[in-house]
Design a protein around this nucleic acid. Structure first.
Lengths: 114, 114
DNA sequence: CGGAGATTCAACCATTTGGTTTAGTATAGG
DNA sequence: CCTATACTAAACCAAATGGTTGAATCTCCG
């Protein structure tokens, strides 16, 4: 079994929703570099710590971030798998775009009134 | 210029948000097969037509769906590019998951409370 | 013309989201 | 023990979401 040790689900809904916010994507980006505590992650953002904590909560519930307690720190780490799942969903449409990309302009030119 | 003929933006925010709903992903899936009118697309769903129309609106504003008027029909078509953009964002983390996936269990085992 | 089909508009509603503030708990360390 | 640090909890708020209903609007066609 290659499934996640914690939760199997972490469905596309919550993953895409989690990624649909620039702050959260920035958190993901910063955690891709290295593990970091909550306050460290919160550093660059112009919002209060509880707000960032909520964003992290969203990422955690989507399975994109995991944490361990290190003393009083909450050490955050990016979890790869859900990103891979989202990517696979998108990828299943690759044949579509590869095929249709060329014909898009034709389609749009056919009749253009929004 | 390879940019979209209509809107250049269609940012990740709106694309991910649009995909964060199962109804909308189903609409995307059904349009991947073929163009279809609003009512046709709405067929399988247990919700009113205006509700589906709103979902389509979200997809259109995200640049994922385009349409042409054909008589009284609104003929919908999937637009590939934004999917590709989202996919590229995710892909930029591929090296991360490839690298770190192996060490995840180790990380989680280190201290597991919550 | 007149009706039926396809879509749109507008008002309304409950819930979720993204943020705040203020206060609380827990741990590190002099 | 005391204090500063790190986080969590709770109450609150405005705005966005996802749905409904009911009434337009527009177009095809007999």
């Amino acid at each position: 079994m290659v499934e996640s040790p914690q939760r199997a689900g972490a469905d596309l809904d919550s993953v895409f929703k989690a990624l649909a916010d620039p702050t959260r994507r920035a958190i993901v980006a910063s955690l891709a570099g290295a593990e970091a505590s909550l306050t460290t992650v919160a550093g660059p953002f112009e919002m209060t710590l509880p707000a960032v904590a909520k964003h992290v909560g969203v990422l955690e519930r989507a399975g994109l971030v995991a944490h361990v307690r290190v003393g009083r720190e909450k050490r955050l780490r990016l979890v790869a798998r859900p990103l891979g799942e989202a990517e696979r969903w998108l990828e299943s449409y690759r044949s579509f775009w590869d095929d249709r990309l060329a014909s898009l302009d034709t389609f749009l030119a056919r009749d253009q009134r929004t």
